[in-house]
Simulated assay, not measured.
Amino acid sequence: MKIQFYTKPDCELCEEAERMLHLVAEDYPLEWQTINIEEDDEIHEKYMLMIPVIEHEGQVLAYGNIGYIDILELIEQ
């Protein structure tokens, strides 16, 4: 599964979610593109109150406090 991971610098929730992505990717086929919302005004406007955000094929799958189990459930759908 390939996802987009929306984040921004100095975001503790984002850092924790990315650690969880790495843990899941150790055991499951998971790839992601990290996108800094501060580099694009439109994306910033869209996600500034939601980050971190996991998106797949244009659909938001998870946002906010994202844990290991949350990511695992997304992959197993």
Rank of each mutant, 00 (worst) to 15 (best):
V24G: 08
I66H: 01
E45P: 11
E42F: 15
E76V: 06
E57L: 12
D70Y: 09
T7V: 01
E55I: 00
L30C: 09
L21Y: 00
E31H: 01
E42V: 12
M48Q: 11
Q33W: 05
C14P: 02
F5T: 01
N36E: 08
H56N: 11
M20D: 06
H22F: 10
I54G: 04
D41C: 08
Y28I: 12
K2P: 06
M48F: 13
Y68N: 10
H56K: 15
I69A: 09
H56G: 09
E73R: 10
F5S: 04
A17M: 05
C11F: 03
M48K: 11
Q4C: 07
V53D: 01
P29M: 12
L13K: 12
D40C: 07
C14T: 03
I51Q: 02
Y63H: 14
G58M: 04
Y6Q: 01
E18Q: 02
Q59I: 13
E73G: 08
A62Q: 02
P9D: 12
I37V: 11
Y47N: 01
E38H: 12
I35V: 08
I75H: 11
E55M: 01
F5P: 07
R19H: 08
V24F: 00
E42Q: 10
Y28E: 11
N36W: 09
C11W: 12
I35H: 02
E73T: 14
K8S: 06
K2Q: 13
N36G: 05
D41F: 12
E31M: 09
P29L: 14
D70V: 03
P29G: 04
E57V: 13
I37K: 01
P29D: 14
Q4N: 04
I69V: 15
D41N: 15
T34K: 13
